[in-house]
Each structure stands twice: as structure tokens, then as C-alpha cells.
């Protein structure tokens, strides 16, 4: 045990002192729980929540896959449904690629939301994390947790970041913590993004801005926030869960 920790420390020292390239791939599993999602929506009636739990409680979960490529400066996150790509039925993969460049402090996110395909090109605006006090192991790494309350969607997000992976990236649009985020838990299990496999290797070929057709709408972070908050406003009025229309 001691020996192991010592080794880790040596590795980390060499990383920090030589500023060696730290890069690799993280495979995440996204787990959706419909019942918990519906239960977390404040504006839905209690009876509606109970009814959906009763009707769908036995098949409330489904999973998707995602990949994060990273080095010290750049991360690229993509949702790839590998399971879905082969077999007797194939659906179109999602257009959702998140690009972060810390050196240039820029984002270049290719997103399809409410039927529009656009690029968010802006400065990195990380979440306002509150650091909590818990420890757990995820994919062989000891992680600590941090909390963020999404003011638009009202979600309560817990991120577990690795103390021994000194990059401030993470899955989806999360980041800005002292270590790599290996797990995100939204609304107590309504949706989790959890690292399953971490592989250290050179992935520079993947660390490029997402490709798209030339004519595309460019959004600022604020435009995106407005788009989301408009949708949530409408969903509230019609009293239906917003996540049937937009991402959770």
C-alpha cells in the first residue's frame, strides 16, 4: 500500500516537475433514470410523479457511452453510442462535441439543441463549484466531490474529481476543478456520467475542433443560456418535463 502510494507520488512529481505531457482517453457511461428525472422537476404535480414511478419504475434506466480525449491543454468530449452503431437497428449518433482549450481559454462546442446545429465559441466559463468533503474511488482513482447548482435548469450537480489527475477537464460541459472530473451525478442519480476506463496515451490526433459544414451559426455562451432558459420557461407553462425537448 505504502509502496503504491509512494509510486504514485513519484509519478506525480515527475509529471509536475518535468511538466510532462499528460494525455489519454476516458470512457464514460451515461446512465439516465427517468423516474428520478421526473421526480426532480419542481413544477410537476406529485400525482404525476407517482404515476410515472408506478408505471415505469421497473424499466427506469438506460445507458449511453461517451469518450473524453485530453492532454494538458485540450479536451474533446463526444457522445458515441458504440452499442447502437452495429446490430439490427442503428440510430443517428448525437451531434454533441465539447472542445476546451485551456491555453487559449476558448470553447468550440458543436451542439444540436432544439433542432438547431450551432457552435458555441467563447471563453471557458466554468461552473461555480463548492468543494465538499467526501472521498471515493472511481476507475482506480481517489476522488473528492464538489457541488454546483445549475441556476437555469435548477439541477443539483455533484462532480467527483481525481486528486491525482491534475487537469481541470471533465465530461459534458463540466470542468474547472483541481482534477479531472471522473463522475458527475445530477439530482441524486437522475443522470450520472461515470468513468469506466482510463487509458493514458497520446491522443493528439483527436484533440481538434469538431468538424462541421462551413455555414453554421456561432453562439456565445449567453445565447446558449438564453435558448435553454426560454425552453424551460415554456416547459414550465405547459407543465411538462423540459428534458423531453432539451438535454438534461
Amino acid at each position: 500500500m505504502r509502496h503504491l502510494i509512494f509510486n504514485i507520488i513519484i509519478v506525480l512529481i515527475s509529471i509536475s516537475s518535468n511538466a510532462q505531457e499528460f494525455s489519454g482517453i476516458i470512457k464514460y457511461e451515461i446512465r439516465h433514470n427517468w423516474i428520478k428525472k421526473i421526480n426532480a422537476v419542481e413544477y410537476l404535480s406529485k400525482s404525476e410523479k407517482e404515476k410515472s414511478a408506478y408505471m415505469w419504475g421497473h424499466t427506469d434506466e438506460y445507458t449511453e457511452d461517451a469518450i473524453l480525449y485530453f492532454n494538458n491543454n485540450i479536451s474533446v468530449y463526444e457522445e458515441v453510442d458504440e452499442e447502437n452503431r452495429s446490430g439490427s437497428w442503428s440510430s443517428r449518433s448525437k451531434e454533441y462535441t465539447i472542445y476546451r482549450n485551456i491555453e487559449e481559454n476558448t470553447t468550440y462546442d458543436l451542439i444540436r439543441e432544439v433542432n438547431k446545429l450551432f457552435v458555441i465559441e467563447d471563453e471557458i466559463q466554468n461552473q461555480n463549484w463548492k468543494i465538499l468533503n467526501d472521498i471515493k474511488e472511481i476507475a482506480g482513482h481517489i476522488c473528492m466531490d464538489a457541488l454546483y447548482k445549475d441556476p437555469i435548469k435548477g439541477n443539483s450537480i455533484i462532480a467527483w474529481f481525481a486528486l491525482d489527475m491534475p487537469v481541470s477537464f471533465g465530461p459534458d460541459r463540466f470542468g474547472g476543478l483541481p482534477g479531472m472530473i471522473l463522475e458527475v451525478d445530477i439530482n441524486q442519480g437522475a443522470m450520472t456520467i461515470s468513468a469506466k476506463k482510463i487509458e493514458e496515451k497520446n491522443v493528439d490526433e483527436f484533440l481538434v475542433k469538431p468538424k462541421h459544414k462551413k455555414r453554421i451559426k456561432y453562439f456565445k455562451e449567453d445565447d446558449y443560456k438564453k435558448l435553454i432558459s426560454d425552453q424551460i420557461e415554456q416547459a414550465k407553462k405547459t407543465e411538462r418535463p423540459y428534458f423531453w425537448r432539451i438535454r438534461y
Partner: peptide
């Protein structure tokens, strides 16, 4: 103890300020 993560949090709400 080298390579420990040191975080500076806002004393009011534990928001991460620097690390």
C-alpha cells in the same frame, strides 16, 4: 507531502476560488 491538492475556498459558501 508533495503533490497534494490545495484548494482555496470562499469561507462563506465553500466556492472554489483558486487551487
Amino acid at each position: 507531502v508533495p503533490a497534494a491538492t490545495v484548494m482555496l475556498l470562499n469561507s462563506k459558501d465553500s466556492t472554489l476560488v483558486n487551487y
